[in-house]
Design a binder for these strands. Structure first.
Length: 598
RNA sequence: GGUCCGGUAGCUCAGUUGGAUAGAGCAUCAGCCUUCUAAGCUGAGGGUCAUUGGUUCGAAUCCAAUCCGGAUCACCA
């Protein structure tokens, strides 16, 4: 039980004993006491005034007296200022609860809750490499999955690969036209970039052909429809759906190039999946669900044989779920996939990490799933995140303003290298150790940058200024971890060392910064719970930063090695050790490693 | 036009179910390395919380209207 929970429980008991009516913890609010006032936690008294018909001060005095008298081991004193009851928690209680928490939480001993959650993220297209927006998706999905794990869920990470459709055919056509048999190997190009280049070439050629046709007197619409390269692409899509062997072989070959490239990127950024779905397989499930929907009268058929659902009663529109030629559309594939996911894993919750541009689509998906009465339809959840934009607006591939994932990772590692060399603190590292360190710092900076913002909000990335390594950043936190580790090495404290016992004489009187650190450390489990409830890694990012910042102030103002007494030194070593553990654990939840030295 | 999301310091962002004098980082300015790693610490300046009205002991937070910005409303995925 956390300090706040304990306080709430005590206050409920005291109020009930004092006033003879039933109270719950919802009848009053508990906040952390603002630094300018004395105390650790504050009960806001205003909400009790009406039901008790007493002044805030009168309630506060009675409650404060009763709390201190009945829980002497928990509260030492109180004060009341303008309707706020500020309570001071006993020093010994901090030691006690921290020592318990030190064993429970820091080393991942969370009990499983028996629930299974699936997190789908990444969802790449196989016609172009990953960009900055994908990175936000990947980091978010991975982190949310880890936060679920830390909260006791069994987690299945999945990826749906969008490996079919007209856009894939564009790359294929362009390769046939312009490559002369070139391959990633022959050109020494990463597979996904290689294929992406042909996607770009397609668009260039298409644009050229359209302009030629317009010059020849066609309208824009006609030109766009009649451009030979577009016609060839549409024919290829039909051939693909018909399973024409040479088209299938080319498709297979080019997709494998892309997968090879993706795997390198995923490996670099630390994304991994327990299960990968391919749209080329799941789209076939569409037809079956449509038939079932027709039988249940959830869907209806138009005269031209196309199949629809009417969602106007739910405030949405009519949506097509199957074309008149019998082929399935986007939404139908997703329904099949949702069913498939459940059938295979019997999941309790299904999370989709997808950009907010698809809010409408996901709303429709969930609604249809519910109307079809698919198992667990109500537990489908769209974890919607905002787009990553440039200061000039959205990233546009046509204008060449897309920030490539591989490029940005490499750039961050380079910045980490420059900075590290400049500081010259790890000159004894081997080349391999240095490479690993640059990767840890560079990728850490990038991940922290993308995860520290509330997922729901769109965010702005300025490629002109590289990501900062100072202040509210990954490297700052990593730096503080390395600093602590340096001290712990010196005094041979390992992370398992037990905390100062509560009987020790050291427990009387903490410095403000010592207390601040303890209060913050104690909150870690609550922060994980909150991050899990909200599916929001930024709660972790903000928390871990605050811990690191508090430690940094502490470190500068007070010496650990030369503490006033041996007991103080032991206490500070323990606090430092726990801080390092919490930093490491919290950063891990965001997929960020912390170095021992930097 | 319908629906949804957003607007907090020059910039990027926090701000718990309404609570005390709205907070960080970057940038700017002034200090701090003989002492556990200065990727650091301390301090200063910087705000009409888009606007207006309402709800109440109390509103950045809840409600309504307005203004501005974005997303979406395909037999594309």
């Amino acid at each position: 039980m956390s300090v706040v929970e304990k306080l709430q429980k005590s206050a409920v008991e005291s109020l009930t004993a004092l006033f003879g009516q039933a109270f719950t913890e919802k009848d009053f609010q508990v906040n952390q006491t603002k630094p300018k006032f004395e105390g650790d936690y504050t009960i806001v008294l205003f909400s009790l005034v009406k039901s008790l018909k007493l002044s805030p001060d009168a309630i506060g005095t009675k409650l404060g007296d009763h709390l201190v008298a009945s829980n002497p081991s928990l509260f030492t004193k109180y004060n009341i200022i303008k309707g706020f009851l500020n309570l001071t928690i006993a020093d010994a209680y901090w030691i006690e609860i921290l020592s318990k928490y030190h064993n429970d939480v820091c080393f991942g001993k969370q009990a499983m809750n028996g629930q299974k959650v699936m997190v789908e993220y990444s969802s790449p297209n196989t016609n172009k490499p990953l960009h900055l927006g994908h990175l936000r998706n990947n980091f978010l999905g991975w982190s949310v999955a880890e936060i679920f794990k830390a909260s006791g869920y069994e987690v299945i990470k999945t990826c749906i690969v969008n490996d079919r459709g007209i856009h894939i055919c564009k790359s294929m056509i362009a390769w046939q036209m312009f490559a002369n048999g070139a391959t990633p190997e022959s050109t020494n190009t990463k597979g996904d970039h290689f294929v992406g280049d042909y996607y770009v070439k397609f668009n260039e050629e298409y644009k050229k052909q359209v302009e030629e046709l317009i010059t020849a007197g066609k309208t824009k619409d006609e030109a766009e429809k009649e451009a030979p390269i577009m016609k060839a692409t549409q024919q290829m899509l039909l051939d693909w759906e018909a399973g024409k062997p040479d088209v299938m072989a080319l498709w297979d070959k080019m997709n494998n190039w892309v997968y090879k490239g993706f795997n390198i990127t995923y490996n670099t950024i630390g994304s991994d999946f327990d299960k990968t779905y391919y749209e080329s397989k799941t789209y076939l499930l569409g037809k079956k669900t449509v038939e079932q929907g027709l039988q249940k009268n959830v869907f209806y058929k138009e005269a031209d044989n196309s199949v629809w659902i009417d969602l106007t009663a739910d405030g949405l529109d009519k949506k097509i779920v199957q074309r008149k030629d019998g082929t399935s559309v986007y939404i139908t594939q997703d329904i099949g996939l949702a069913l498939d996911k459940y059938n295979e894993y019997k999941i309790d919750r299904s999370i989709y990490v997808i950009g907010d541009e698809q809010n409408y689509h996901m709303k429709v998906l969930k609604l249809i799933a519910e109307k079809l009465q698919l198992p667990n339809a109500e537990n489908i959840y769209h974890l919607s995140y905002g787009m990553v934009e440039l200061p000039t607006g959205k990233m546009k591939s046509r204008e060449g303003t897309v920030v490539d994932a591989d490029d940005i990772v490499e750039e961050m590692e380079k910045v980490a290298q420059d900075k590290t060399e400049e500081l010259g603190k790890v000159k004894d590292f081997t080349a391999a150790e240095l490479t690993a360190l640059y990767h840890t710092i560079g990728l850490g900076a990038l991940k922290f940058f993308l995860l520290r913002v509330d997922p729901k909000k769109k965010m702005i990335f300025n490629p002109e200024e590289s990501i900062d390594f100072h202040g509210f950043t990954g490297p700052f936190i990593q730096f503080n971890h390395a600093r602590i580790k340096s001290i712990l090495r010196k005094f041979e404290v390992n992370s398992q060392s037990s905390i100062v016992s509560s009987e020790s004489s050291v427990v009387s009187g903490f410095l403000p910064l010592e207390k601040e650190l303890m209060v913050a450390l104690e909150q870690y489990p609550n922060v994980i719970r909150q991050a899990c409830d909200e599916m929001n890694p930024s709660a972790i990012a903000i928390y871990v930063y605050n811990i690191a910042k508090t430690f940094s102030s502490f470190y500068t103002e007070h010496s650990i090695a030369n503490a006033e007494t041996e007991e103080k030194k032991q206490l500070r070593l323990q606090l430092a050790s726990m801080t390092a553990n919490v930093i490491k654990s919290g950063m891990h939840l965001m997929g960020i490693d912390v170095p021992e030295r930097m």
